[in-house]
């Protein structure tokens, strides 16, 4: 079967075909997302250009290509272009008739990379990049200015598009050797670096977004002084800090789900208002 493909002189994928694979995956990643397959057969759709190029006269090989890319797959879709790039380079070799690469290699590469990449990708994109850009944007739109959302739209569109392109190119260029970079020691250092960055920014974010002030007045002789004023004197933002640490404790140590935490916070707010503390 492979011999048939060999009768034609096999060529590498053209820029146009690579762009097609890149865009098909980038756009359609989650089009039919389900718990069972997640990105699943979007891969088969993405690799149709490979099939059209190498397996036009070999329907069995074309079928095997589509079928091996119809299995469960899930990772962070934007940084996930790295895996798409690696698989594109592998499928190109297989299509050109390179006997050293088994047809199962793309499948195992995908299965072994999706976990680590989702961990890094989700914490960098959703955990650090998006909250950071949003908190800058929220600062810009105080008072209802449209500048904030416009800034976020432009900044995120540019950065995220650049990330997808760079990830795909690196994956394609490095091929399987990208895996070492991804789960090796230096990758851990880079993740660690981003985690530190994220933790500091989130700390700042909680100071600027959580708004809890007390209305309690403390009598000083004839006059009264607001408790909030006293608190601000020695520790501004003490109440928001206590609140966020309490919520973190509920989630990390008590393992409460979000709905339960929302109910607890609602109870805190309600009791606080009713006893006249908040």
């Amino acid at each position: 079967m492979v011999d048939e493909a060999k009768t034609k002189t096999p060529k590498r994928l053209t820029k146009k075909e690579l762009r097609s694979i890149f865009l098909r995956y980038g756009i359609m990643t989650e089009s039919a997302m389900s718990y069972e397959k997640m990105h699943g057969a979007t891969w088969a759709y993405s690799y149709m250009p490979v099939g059209e190029k190498y397996y036009k006269d070999n329907p069995e090989a074309y079928k095997r290509l589509l079928t091996r890319h119809a299995v469960f797959y899930n990772t962070e879709p934007q940084t996930g272009q790295l895996v798409n790039g690696i698989v594109a380079s592998l499928e190109e070799q297989i299509g050109m008739g390179n006997k050293e690469i088994d047809e199962n290699v793309p499948v195992t590469v995908k299965a072994s990379l999706m976990g680590p990449l989702a961990g890094i990708g989700d914490s960098v994109m959703q955990g650090i990049l998006i909250p950071t850009l949003l908190s800058i944007a929220m600062g810009l739109s105080k008072g209802g200015s449209a500048l904030g959302p416009v800034f976020y739209i432009v900044a995120y569109a540019v950065i995220a598009t650049a990330i997808t392109i760079i990830a795909f190119r690196s994956g394609y260029k490095l091929g399987v050797s990208a895996i070492d970079k991804l789960i090796g020691e230096s990758a851990k250092r880079i993740t660690n670096m981003f985690t530190v960055l994220g933790m500091i920014v989130i700390g700042g974010l909680s100071a600027s977004t959580i708004a809890v002030t007390t209305t309690v007045k403390i009598p000083f002789g004839d006059k009264t002084k607001g408790l909030q004023e006293i608190l601000d004197g020695f520790f501004p933002g003490l109440l928001p800090l206590i609140l966020v640490l309490f919520t973190w404790w509920l989630i990390s140590s008590k393992h409460y789900g979000p709905t339960k935490v929302i109910l607890i916070l609602t109870a805190v707010a309600a009791i606080g208002v009713l006893i006249g503390f908040l």
Binding site: G198, M199, P240, W248, I251, S252
Partner: peptide, 11 residues
């Protein structure tokens, strides 16, 4: 505080 606490839990 909820969203931030969930991020903290992850990082």
């Amino acid at each position: 505080a909820l969203g931030i606490a969930m991020l903290m839990n992850m990082l």
